[in-house]
């Protein structure tokens, strides 16, 4: 298989397969969760659950209280660094926005590539810092499973291959771009069936926590 065929495959059939598995998996997981239902709430309603739910969806984007911040400053900085970095890299790089527009029809302004480049490096550094932390922190290491390491790797690969393609490192741009797209396709396939599903379920979970707390009249 030459460079052109490889690139054509990942942009064609490869993408179709990955997208199909991705949307199939997301629908499957959401349906499973929603059909589980909830036990009826028997206690007297003491507050506005809906408002509290909506508020919680957004309030939990902010760092926790100062005590938590002090205790786990490293995790907060590296965690936010990598999430914000990923957001910028995925959504605000022009070719990525072009792909999203061609698939969904939605478009938005993008950032100059040197800025995206900076965030790419930031993301990779944060991911490596998180891996180092996972390997050196005794409790975290004890709790870590193979999936945790695999997900770190699968998240890291698209960022690394994208960076290498942009800077023409090791392989020609065509091969590296193909590998970059392939690594994203691998990630798309595993997202619904691993802990990475949190990128969608977090909104539902936050809303539910906030809703329950709101109905009970407590702060969420």
């Amino acid at each position: 298989m030459n460079e052109v065929n490889f690139l054509l495959w990942v942009r064609g059939i490869g993408f179709d397969i990955a997208l199909a598995i991705f949307v199939f998996g997301i629908m499957l997981r959401f349906m499973e969760i929603l059909w589980l239902g909830r036990k009826p709430e028997l206690a007297a309603v003491r507050g506005n659950g809906v408002a509290s739910g909506m508020r919680t969806v957004f309030s939990r984007f902010l760092p926790a209280d100062s005590n938590t911040l002090k205790r786990s400053l490293f995790m907060v900085v590296a965690g936010y660094g990598f999430h914000i970095g990923l957001f910028v890299v995925i959504f605000l790089f022009a070719p990525h926005a072009e792909l999203i527009e061609s698939v969904t029809g939605l478009s938005w302004p993008t950032l100059p590539s040197p800025i995206v480049d900076f965030f790419t490096v930031l993301t990779m550094l944060a991911l490596m810092a998180l891996l180092w932390r996972r390997l050196t922190h005794p409790v975290l290491r004890f709790l870590s499973t193979g999936e945790d390491y695999l997900m770190l790797l699968l998240t890291f690969l698209p960022v690394l291959t994208g960076y290498m393609a942009f800077h023409h490192l090791f392989l020609s741009y065509g091969w590296m771009l193909g590998l970059h797209i392939l690594s994203v396709e691998l990630l798309l396939i595993v997202i619904p069936f691993t802990k990475l599903i949190h990128m969608f379920t977090l909104f539902m979970a936050r809303w539910y926590s906030g809703f329950m707390a709101g109905q009970k009249g407590v702060q969420s």
């Binding site: 054509l8 059939i13 179709d16 072009e98």
Partner: peptide, 8 residues
Amino acid sequence: LAEPTGNF
């Protein structure tokens, strides 16, 4: 180049 080529 970023666009998928297939009919997905």
